[in-house]
C-alpha cells in the first residue's frame, strides 16, 4: 500500500526487503533453534542432562560389577540374605546400562520441554512469536521439532556414551559386551526416541497449561507418580488396572528401550507406537488450542 502512494521516498533498505520472501517452515525452525541456544539456562540444562545420564549409567555399571563380585566371592547366589534376587542375571542387566540414565534424563527433558513453551507465556515472548508467525501452527510445530531433535540426540548420545563408559568398569568382571550384542544398538537409538516422545508429550502439556510449574508437576505426575501409584496401590483393585497401566507413556517407553520383551508384554515397536500415540494426541490438542487462543 505504502509503496503505491506517490510521495514515498522509500529508503534503500525498503527495496532490499522486497525480494526476501516471507515466512517458511525452515526459517521458523531456524528461529526456534536460535531461541533454544540463546537462553543460557537451556543450554546448561541440556549439557547437564547428558552428564547426569552418563554418570548414572557408570554408577549402574559399577553396582552390577560389585554385585557380580559379591556373587563370585560368596558363591551362594540363591536366597542369600540381602543378596540379589534369584533371577539376577548380571549379563542381561549390563546390556541395559546404556538406557539406565533415562529414568532421570526424562525428568530433565520433560522439564526443559515444558519450560521452553511455558516460559514464552510467562515472559510474554509468545506475543512476539505469534506476531512473527501469525499462523501459529508452524511456530508450535517447529518448537516441537527442535525439542524432539534435541531430546533424541541427548538420549541417543547419552546412551552411546554410557555404553562406552560402562565397558571398562564391567570389564573387571568380564561383563563387558559388544555393541553388536543383540538388542543393544536398537536400545541405544530408542533411548533417543524415548526422550523425543517424552519431550513432545511434555511440550503439549506445557502448551495446554501455559504455566511452567503446573506443566512440570503434571508431566512428572504422568511419567512418575501415576505409574508408581498404580503399581503399588491400585493394581490390586481390579484386573484391568495393571492391564491399562501398560499403556502409560513411561511404561510403554520401557518396552520401547527393552533389550528383550516377554511374550505377553508389548514389543519394542508396540511400545514405541503407544508413546507415539500419546505424543501425537497432545501435539494435535495443543495445535487446536493454540489456533484460536487469544495471546
Amino acid at each position: 500500500m505504502a509503496t503505491s502512494t506517490p510521495p514515498a521516498p522509500a529508503r534503500q533498505s525498503h527495496k532490499q526487503a522486497e525480494p526476501g520472501p516471507g515466512v517458511n517452515f525452515g526459517r521458523v525452525l531456524k528461529s526456534e533453534w536460535i531461541k533454544v541456544t540463546t537462553v543460557p539456562s537451556t543450554v546448561i540444562l541440556i549439557v547437564s542432562t547428558v552428564v547426569v545420564m552418563v554418570g548414572l549409567a557408570a554408577l549402574a555399571a559399577w553396582a552390577i560389577s560389585i554385585t557380580q563380585q559379591d556373587l563370585g566371592s560368596s558363591g551362594a547366589p540363591q536366597g542369600g540374605q540381602g543378596g540379589p534376587p534369584a533371577d539376577f542375571d548380571p549379563a542381561s542387566q549390563a546390556w541395559e546400562i546404556p538406557s539406565s540414565g533415562l529414568i532421570f534424563g526424562q525428568l530433565l527433558i520433560a522439564s526443559l520441554a515444558v519450560v521452553l513453551i511455558a516460559s514464552e507465556w510467562a515472559t510474554g515472548m509468545i506475543r512476539s512469536t505469534m506476531v512473527a508467525v501469525p499462523k501459529r501452527a508452524p511456530a508450535l510445530l517447529a518448537k516441537n521439532a527442535i525439542i524432539a531433535i534435541i531430546a533424541f540426540v541427548v538420549g541417543a548420545v547419552s546412551a552411546f556414551l554410557s555404553y562406552l563408559v560402562a565397558q571398562p568398569i564391567l570389564a573387571g568382571e568380564d561383563l563387558d559386551f559388544a555393541i553388536t550384542t543383540e538388542g543393544v544398538l536398537p536400545s541405544i537409538l530408542n533411548s533417543g526416541s524415548y526422550l523425543a516422545f517424552i519431550a513432545i508429550i511434555s511440550m503439549g502439556i506445557g502448551t495446554l497449561l501455559r504455566n511452567t510449574a503446573g506443566g512440570v508437576v503434571t508431566a512428572v505426575a504422568l511419567f512418575f507418580v501415576v505409574p508408581v501409584i498404580i503399581v503399588n496401590l491400585l493394581s490390586g483393585l481390579a484386573d484391568w488396572i495393571p492391564d491399562a497401566a501398560r499403556f502409560l507413556p513411561t511404561n510403554a517407553g520401557n518396552q520401547l528401550i527393552a533389550i528383550s520383551t516377554e511374550s505377553d508384554a508389548l514389543t519394542q515397536f508396540q511400545g514405541g507406537l503407544v508413546m507415539g500415540a500419546w505424543a501425537l494426541v497432545l501435539l494435535v490438542a495443543s495445535l487446536l488450542v493454540t489456533r484460536t487462543r487469544d495471546v
Binding site: K35, V39, M125
Partner: peptide
Amino acid sequence: AVHTKRSAYNHLRAMAATH
C-alpha cells in the same frame, strides 16, 4: 514481549530468522 534471559541482539535475531 521478550524472554527475559535472552539478549536483545538474540531476541531480534530469532524474530528476524522467521522472515
